[in-house]
């Protein structure tokens, strides 16, 4: 972070005000009937999705690294009802919405994307380990000049905590859209500290993250099977990963289908493997690397490894520079005559 980090907390407060004011504007004018953003939770530290219909409720909206869920998927239910829906969009939200538009699940004219600069999302598991917090613990954050400052429930003031970069979610560490792309408008451009943080190079590159996967991919088949078998044994087939994913937008999921029944209900290893591998390949080429699948998983499965592997393959096989950004035509949605085809 730059030398102006001392102002980041102030700028976040200003950004929140700007978001609330814009929401009031859009709702009172009738230009949109709903603003989707984040709000303080009833308990715990992650800000939860907010659905603001009345301008009096715009004051509930919050911004910052405590905002958790990617909001894009909600448009599948909320958009297309005859009026516009606004989304307070971080980079991942914007990519998710563009994904749904590219997949023709929602219409571009039904959505109004309000982009804002993003510092990344705090991963509660990493924060819990770094600051000795328990799951579900309520904690408030501030961005201090030296890192995060935390106020636990019941405490008077804030105490120093870890560096933000130590506790950011994996997807946020490599994010290259912290200044969102493809939005209808961008708030906070005058907030120099936030903009500098948002446009600074990511803490690590996507390639470095993919290297973790390459290590796993280089192990023997038996080792890889053992790794995934242990992980998938903990999978309870709750479908949270699928439901939270902006790229999973089928009205009837083939893995849920009863007629015909492609996948059995039993949570036995062969079915678990099938579920995750089929879903990963269905999403391949369209994953926006938001990391929501890993975030929502109650069993903390490293689901992004599957997506990263496929993104890496797409990058190297098809020369796509940024596979997580919706393309004009998706890499797996077209072919060139000189595409690799080792099996022919």
């Amino acid at each position: 972070m730059s030398a102006t980090t001392g102002n980041l907390q102030q700028e976040l407060a200003q950004l929140a005000e700007a978001v609330r004011a814009r929401a009031v504007e859009l709702l009172s004018s009738g230009e949109v009937s709903l603003v989707i953003g984040h709000q303080r939770p009833w308990i715990g530290s992650e800000a939860i999705p907010a659905f603001v219909k009345a301008s009096e409720r715009a004051a509930d909206l919050v911004v910052g690294p405590q905002c958790a869920a990617v909001l894009a998927g909600y448009l599948m239910d909320e958009a297309g009802q005859g009026t516009k829906v606004a989304v307070i969009a971080r980079g991942c939200d914007a990519l998710g919405v563009r994904r749904l538009i590219a997949d023709r699940r929602i219409a571009e004219e039904d959505v109004h994307l309000i982009g804002l600069p993003c510092l990344g999302r705090i991963d509660p598991v990493k924060l819990g380990a770094a600051a000795d917090l328990e799951p579900g613990e309520t904690v408030d954050f501030e961005i201090g000049s030296g890192g995060l400052r935390l106020r636990r429930a019941g405490d008077e003031g804030f105490t120093d905590g870890p560096q933000l970069s130590e506790v950011l979610a994996d997807s946020c560490l490599v994010c290259d859209v912290r200044k969102p792309e493809g939005c209808d408008e961008l708030l906070g451009e005058e907030l120099s500290g936030l903009m500098a943080a948002a446009t600074a190079p990511p803490v690590r590159t996507m390639a470095e993250w993919e290297a973790e996967v390459e290590e796993l991919a280089s192990r023997s088949p038996d080792d890889r099977y053992t790794f995934w078998a242990e992980q998938f044994t903990a999978c309870i087939r709750c479908f949270a990963c699928r439901n939270g994913c902006p790229a999973c937008s089928c009205r009837v999921c083939s893995l849920d289908s009863y007629q015909p029944k492609w996948l059995g209900h039993p949570t036995e290893l062969p079915e678990q493997f099938m579920f995750h591998f089929i879903r990963a390949t269905d999403v391949a080429g369209r994953c926006v690397a938001c990391g929501e699948c890993a975030r929502v998983c109650p069993a903390n499965l490293p689901l992004m490894y599957l997506n990263l592997k496929l993104m890496h393959d797409i990058r190297s096989l098809f020369g796509v520079d940024r596979p997580h950004v919706p393309q004009e035509i998706e890499p797996l949605g077209k072919f060139e005559s000189d595409d690799p085809e080792e099996f022919m």
């Binding site: 939860i48 999705p49 907010a50 659905f51 869920a69 998927g73 909600y74 239910d77 909320e78 309870i236 087939r237 709750c238 479908f239 949270a240 699928r242 439901n243 939270g244 929502v296 109650p298």
Partner: peptide
């Protein structure tokens, strides 16, 4: 009507 929109309809709550 206020509480439901944010639900993901995943089975996590019921399964834990």
């Amino acid at each position: 009507d206020d509480l439901a929109p944010r639900c993901l309809s995943c089975g996590t709550c019921t399964y834990v």
